[in-house]
Amino acid sequence: MPLWSIYHTPGTFTADEKRELATRITDHYHQVGLPRFYVVTAFHEVTPDNLFVGGEPTPVGVRVVIDHIARRLPDEQSRRRVAGWVNEIMRPFLERHEHLHWEFHVDETSADLWMINGLVPPPPGSAAEQRWAKDNLALPY
């Protein structure tokens, strides 16, 4: 499960941009074999007086926190590739904002602490996971 928590100041994203960004994020993970329903994108609007960078209120800012659970990145090259991809997907939505401060990070969480609808997700690449991806549904296996 990738969970993208996107904290942003008001007016950073339109409703259409949120949907487009969430779709692009989901499409990427689906292309590498994850079920679409594994991908969760949550937008959190934060007023400038509640978002501080360096101890100062930030008039326009975005902070993206990404939790990866379904897969692990095996090496530095893979981590750099993912960081580059996150940068590429976010940049078009953010570069139009003057003086915007934005950053992201990716955490890798233990899959041992993860369930969907009370089910332990199937092993990566297994027939059960492929069925979950095909049906876009968590099913007993």
Rank of each mutant, 00 (worst) to 15 (best):
W85F: 01
N50W: 06
V65C: 10
H30T: 15
E108L: 03
V46R: 00
D75V: 03
V64Y: 03
A15I: 04
D67E: 12
E17M: 01
R71H: 14
W132P: 03
W132I: 04
T47M: 05
E95C: 03
G54D: 02
V64C: 10
I89D: 07
V40A: 14
V40P: 08
E95D: 05
R96K: 12
I25W: 08
G55V: 03
W132A: 05
A133M: 08
W4F: 10
V106Q: 04
D107V: 05
T41L: 02
P59G: 00
P92L: 02
E56L: 12
E56H: 06
L139M: 14
G55N: 03
V53F: 11
P122N: 12
A15R: 08
M115K: 15
L3C: 10
S126M: 04
D75Y: 04
G118Q: 03
W132G: 06
S5H: 14
G84E: 00
F93C: 00
R80P: 01
A83V: 00
N87P: 00
I89A: 10
G118W: 04
H101K: 10
Q31C: 11
R71M: 15
A15F: 05
A15T: 06
E20M: 07
R96L: 02
V65N: 14
H30Q: 15
A70Q: 11
T12L: 07
T23H: 13
D135N: 13
F43M: 03
G55W: 03
R72L: 09
V40R: 15
D27H: 08
G33R: 05
K18R: 15
I6C: 03
L139W: 10
P122F: 12
R79K: 09
R72V: 12
G11Y: 07
F52Y: 14
M90F: 12
D49A: 01
H68F: 14
G54I: 00
L139G: 10
A83C: 00
P57G: 02
E56I: 05
V46Q: 01
S110G: 10
L3A: 13
P123V: 15
H105W: 13
H101Q: 11
G33Y: 06
P35L: 10
E95A: 02
R19W: 03
E98N: 03
V106L: 08
E129K: 05
S110Q: 06
K18T: 06
H105G: 10
W132M: 06
P48V: 00
D112V: 09
E108T: 04
L119E: 07
H105P: 04
H101W: 09
Q31T: 15
T9A: 00
R79S: 04
A83G: 02
V82A: 10
E88S: 08
T26E: 08
Q130K: 13
V53K: 02
H68E: 14
V82L: 13
G33C: 08
E76I: 03
D67R: 08
R36M: 10
L73C: 02
I6E: 01
A22M: 04
V82I: 09
A42T: 15
E20A: 13
L3R: 13
R96D: 00
H101D: 12
